[in-house]
Design a protein around this nucleic acid. Sequence first.
DNA 1: CTGGGTGCAAACTCTTTGCATTCGG
DNA 2: CCGAATGCAAAGAGTTTGCACCCAG
Lengths: 131, 131
Amino acid sequence: MAAERQTKQKAIIYEALKTLDHPTATEVYGYVHERYPSVSRATVFRVLSGFSSSGRALEVRLAGSDMRYDYNVNEHYHVHCRCCGKIADVEVTIKTPATKTVSESCGYLIDGFAAEFFGICPACAENKSCC
Amino acid sequence: MAAERQTKQKAIIYEALKTLDHPTATEVYGYVHERYPSVSRATVFRVLSGFSSSGRALEVRLAGSDMRYDYNVNEHYHVHCRCCGKIADVEVTIKTPATKTVSESCGYLIDGFAAEFFGICPACAENKSCC
DNA sequence: CTGGGTGCAAACTCTTTGCATTCGG
DNA sequence: CCGAATGCAAAGAGTTTGCACCCAG
């Protein structure tokens, strides 16, 4: 009953997702709007939200920032540069913190975990002037 | 030159912070406004932001939620109930993930880490009807 | 054809800001 | 007294929604 339809807009938005680096919806809109001015903001939000529901993209909410979208749907974490704000993927396996300990501490049944790293990106480490 | 001044509003807002459970600014405003209708939204935001700058409270940005404030400024993490959304503190020491490995993976100089747990709170685990 | 998708604009929510007034120290 | 802190209202920024029109299948 719900055959997802393929549209130009979706293709462009997905392309923006791959081209831009963990963009916010507004950044995606900027990219898309430059190339196809007729695409509306609402569509960008609806399509991104749809991608996230269908597992084609991830919603990423990092500290001090709006919602961001990530086309990399594999399990991974993010590093956030304290200087320029650049976000990068971290493809490491984090040894899950002692779930049992956490569970005992708060009484919850733990079944998930999210992490975010902070640091200085290579560019900012070299170019001290930016900090 | 910048002697921080003690005001009724700050006292009430701090009380709200301790009474409410990781409230959003809007929730704090609700609590405060009930008791002192004259306090304005702007003041709540300004005071909370001030608390966070002065280290009297922490800003907590959890997945899928607005900014929340926490009067507990000790190092701790949060658990988020998938059912009711209730947030609890987790006072455990997480073995910091291999910083070296992370650093190698993305090239950043890692100097910080944030984590969030997901799960089911005791109340929801019992009362299955809520999920 | 048909209904899922889109554009537009208005509505909403959360947060910030300018400015005159208040009041803590 | 003096200037930090408030209240009010208006402005922003990001996101959602109602509705008529459009186009992929």
